[in-house]
Nucleic acid binder design. Structure first.
Lengths: 196, 196
DNA sequence: CGATTTGACATACGTTCCGTATGTGTGCTC
DNA sequence: GAGCACACATACGGAACGTATGTCAAATCG
């Protein structure tokens, strides 16, 4: 009862999204051609506009997929830690390191906000941001850190992480820069942990 | 000895940059048409390509101008404060509020990095980032805060500020959101002030 | 079981816009 | 005052997006 038709359709959409991920990551959103991208998937622009409406719709689909993957990876990292606060720091360390991956940096962090606007308004609800917000709420609830607006803290820390990753990615000595960035990040995060 | 010719040329470049600021801010980089933009300045694309090379060159010129203005405004805010640490916080508060201005947010914070890449690689050297880095170096030198890599701290705080501004700008209740963002920001910044 | 319809996808077309190549007139130099 | 350099306009080619239309298989229904 899977529906032969619907199954083929999912297959098609998946191929298009995958090709788009590659194209957007390599050439950026503006530089990626819909003709080339669909041809690489063995299709034409007809299929693309039928399923995704327009170029922005395709970007949105790509972002939804990447965002979901990131949230899953972050959850694993956070839950693997013994101590809550330690897990929190590990999670952000993982976030910074993920933001170094060209696909994530280019598509989700640079082109995404520029083309689609503020991430919190995305239909995917930014699963990754929600994940870190929940984590902070948990820390507050457990009394591990003093009360704070969890969403505000998550947003600021995500912003700091993103810029850290941009800095590291463009650096001539990435590993040294990453160390500096992580050190500074921990200093900032500790501002949350200890009351004024 | 001003050179009638050179003076006219500066006038032309200025008019183009000003028209570009308006167009980029209103329609975004991708959505702005060079034809419309130059026509609004009473010129044609010929002038534009002669002076700026290509569309990215024009964006760079616009960004240089805005960046310089921001650095100047930040400096005034920081120097006006009595206490160094207080001045530091005031400066970032001003930064967040500036990032709410559509022109700055759209051009410098969203389209700029997406089109031109990491800001630290911009020819303008990101005067605004340099300004905040210097401020942090001053705090360390005066013993107001424990040693920290000033550039790393400045980058992370700028990133946090930017995301705070994006959040506030897209919010339904901007003033309440701004208050939450500023509160969270202060908590993070205090992580710099007090040693572990 | 055959006719009809739905929908996934391809093809063709018009429009827009960027970058370049070429033309032109005005102001500086000798 | 002649020649040249340069600021700027005009003309052209090409690429890319979105839409409108066509086609063919599969699901539906009498």
């Amino acid at each position: 009862m899977a529906g032969r038709r619907a199954q083929m359709m999912e297959e098609t959409k998946g191929r298009l999204v995958q090709a788009a991920r590659r194209a957007f990551a390599e050439k950026g959103y503006a530089g990626a051609s819909m003709d080339d991208l669909t041809a690489e998937a063995g299709l034409t622009r007809g299929a693309l506009y039928h399923h995704f409406g327009d170029k922005k719709g395709l970007l949105q689909a790509v972002i939804d997929q990447i965002d979901a993957e990131m949230a899953g990876r972050l959850r694993v990292v956070g839950e693997r830690a013994s101590h809550p606060w330690r897990g929190f720091l590990d999670e952000y360390r993982a976030y910074i390191e993920m933001a170094l991956e060209p696909e994530i940096q280019r598509i989700l962090l640079l082109d995404g906000p520029a083309v689609l606007g503020d991430p919190s308004r995305w239909p995917s609800q930014n699963a990754c941001l929600a994940e870190t917000t929940l984590r902070i709420q948990g820390l507050v609830a457990d009394g591990a850190i003093p009360p704070v607006d969890a969403e505000a803290a998550a947003r600021l820390l995500n912003g700091a992480s993103l810029h850290a990753a941009l800095w590291v990615a463009a650096s001539d000595a990435p590993e040294a820069t990453l160390a500096k960035a992580l050190d500074a990040f921990q200093r900032l995060a500790e501002g949350l942990a200890r009351p004024a």
